[in-house]
Structures are given as C-alpha cells and as structure tokens.
Amino acid sequence: MASLISCPHCGVRPKEEFAIKGAVLSRPAPDAGHQAWTEYVYLRDNPRGIHREYWHHTSGCRRWLVVTRDTASHEVELCLDAAAAKLAGVRP
C-alpha cells in the first residue's frame, strides 16, 4: 500500500515515484578480469538486514540515490545523492 523514501532533494515521497536498480557496487576497471566483471554483472547478495541500493527518483528530481535500508524492518536509514556521495569519496 505504501512505503516512503526521504529523497535528499525532494523530501518524503512514496515508492511509486522511484525505480530501483539494485545493489550499490563499484564498477570494476575495464581490465579487472573476468571474475571481477562476472561478480559485478551477475552475482548479488540477498542480505537480511542492512542493504545499500541505487534508487532513481524517476518521477521527481530524476537524481540517482544511494538508499540504505533494512530489508527485514523496511526502515530506511540513509538516503544520499549518488553523485554527491561518490564525489565526496563515500565508498559504494
């Protein structure tokens, strides 16, 4: 029925305004090798508890966000602008 995400730019919005891409991972270097790339493209953890994901505020500010949430309680702990986080050196 509802879930609310607190967008750092727009404030509290319902999940319908967002699109979820999945886990936040570091894109490997082009020559990182087959193993690193296979893990990046295909392998995903399915954690119970804290999970960091890329969410896109598609029907809002159109910014990509890093949402840290608890998959068990659905509690959203943190919501950062992905670009700002990366430029500030926040580890993905």
């Binding site: 891409k21 894109r27 890329y54 896109h56 159109r62 910014r63 990509w64 602008d81 992905a82 670009a83 700002a84 990366k86 430029l87």
Partner: peptide
C-alpha cells in the same frame, strides 16, 4: 542519468 550521476559524476 545513472552513468552520468552514479558512475562518472566527475
């Protein structure tokens, strides 16, 4: 937008 913001914000 993902590439511009999340991958290569620089």
């Amino acid at each position: 937008e993902f590439c511009a913001q999340a991958l290569w914000p620089e």
